[in-house]
Simulated scan of single mutants.
Amino acid sequence: MLSLAEISDRLEIQQLLIDYSSAIDRRQFDDLDHVFTPDAYIDYRAMGGIDGQFPEVKQWLAEVLPNFPAYAHMLGNFDVRITGDTASSRTICFNPMVLPGEAQQVLFCGLWYEDEFIRTADGWRMSRRVETKCFDKVV
């Protein structure tokens, strides 16, 4: 049986995952400062992106994502594992992205987020994010 503290931690981490998606989908990239640790490692290479430390990747997101007219994240299957002041999770993401151009094509992306977290003075923060590709298809 889960303790109230573990239930609270799981809900905080799940909200952090949602906060990430909301910041990206609303194009409010500075909101990611409340999701990641300043030295977080992020690896988006499985879906054609870059990898690196949070500040570099945040700048890349702010430059690249506005090229897409629309996109949205839908998360599910939150598998959160907590060990004291660290945690890990595996979450599935469905991310359709409208491609630039007049053809109105959509890139359907299916991926897993493999994340690590650390409890900080400001609450839980993501210290590592690695994407694993499930599928992608242009329609």
Rank of each mutant, 00 (worst) to 15 (best):
F78P: 08
F29I: 04
S89F: 05
V98E: 06
F94L: 10
I24W: 01
R81L: 13
F68V: 01
L61E: 04
A87T: 10
I82P: 06
Y44M: 04
T37Q: 09
G76R: 07
S89H: 07
P55H: 11
L65Y: 10
C93Q: 05
F94I: 10
N77Q: 14
E56G: 13
D19Q: 07
Y41W: 13
D33S: 06
M74Y: 12
P38S: 10
H73N: 06
N77M: 13
R27W: 00
I18Y: 12
I24R: 01
G49F: 05
P69V: 04
A70Y: 01
L75A: 13
H73G: 03
S22F: 00
E56L: 11
A87Q: 07
R26G: 00
D33G: 02
D43T: 07
C93F: 02
V57W: 08
P96K: 02
V35F: 09
V80A: 09
F54R: 08
I18D: 10
W60E: 04
F78N: 11
A40P: 13
R45D: 03
N67M: 12
V80M: 08
L75D: 12
W60G: 02
P66D: 15
G84E: 12
D79N: 15
D85Q: 14
Y41R: 07
H34G: 12
D25F: 00
I92S: 11
Y71P: 00
P55N: 11
T86I: 08
R26V: 00
A46N: 05
V57P: 06
L75R: 05
P96T: 04
Y71F: 14
F78K: 06
V57D: 12
P69M: 03
H34L: 11
D39H: 09
F78C: 05
T37E: 09
D79I: 15
D85N: 15
F68C: 00
M47V: 14
R81K: 14
I24S: 01
R45T: 15
Q28I: 00
M97R: 05
I18P: 01
C93R: 02
P55A: 11
G52M: 03
M47H: 05
L61D: 03
G48N: 08
A87F: 08
D31P: 02
C93S: 11
I50H: 06
T91K: 05
Q59E: 15
Q53R: 14
A70N: 04
V64H: 14
T91A: 04
P66A: 14
T37C: 09
